[in-house]
Amino acid sequence: MTANRTQTLRRPSTSTHSSQLIFDAYGSAPTAHETDAIRELTNAYADLTGLVRVVDSEVTSGRRATRTLDLDDRTGIKAKASSEFLLDELATDRGLAWNEIARLCRVTVSAVRKWRAGESISPGNRRALARLAAFLDLLEEVGPVGEPAGWFGMRLIEHHTVTAADLYCEGRADDVLEYAQGQLTASDVLDRWNPDWRSETRAEWMIVDDPEAGRILVRRSEERGLDAS
């Protein structure tokens, strides 16, 4: 070790050779031993980085797989209830609109009306109701979403009209849960769904409460950025 070791790092010289940088830091040429040690550390960090990536990938896969198993398990439990019970849970306890329940379960509104009136429901449709109920339970547990049904209907990103409910309908329930838990950003989720979402889902209009006209749609002003005033 030399006396100049406490010097602060100067801006590197134009040469980017590692030994030159070390020379600038220490004010004198490093010994062969120090150079070897630094290179060994660099390689060790590179190995660790690769290992962390592999572990992260496997942990992510495991997390998603167990999340799917959990949702399936909860769905199975919920599916033992009657359709009337499930509908009541979704509509009265969770506050979902009937048309929204129909959309999320991929059935017609008239089918939901019939179930409400006590008509029979197929096993597949019962499972769809159960899965939705189980999903909302899980959503409430995994993330700081507050009111799950309300969060479900909100835009994921401002100025783009896609909601978590839209992605659920597209078979992206796993990604929605990952987003709720903070494992994915909203952009990540949307990129995984549709790489062109930025252009295809941009909100061209904004909703305004006008004192005379009521609730109206107003075209966004491009030249002012995103919001017309």
Partner: peptide, 19 residues
């Protein structure tokens, strides 16, 4: 009812009143 975040609360309140 106007906001997606609070709409379920309104739906729930009315349905519970019906019940």
């Amino acid at each position: 009812l106007k906001e997606p975040r609070t709409r379920p609360q309104a739906m729930r309140a009315v349905r519970q009143e019906i019940r």
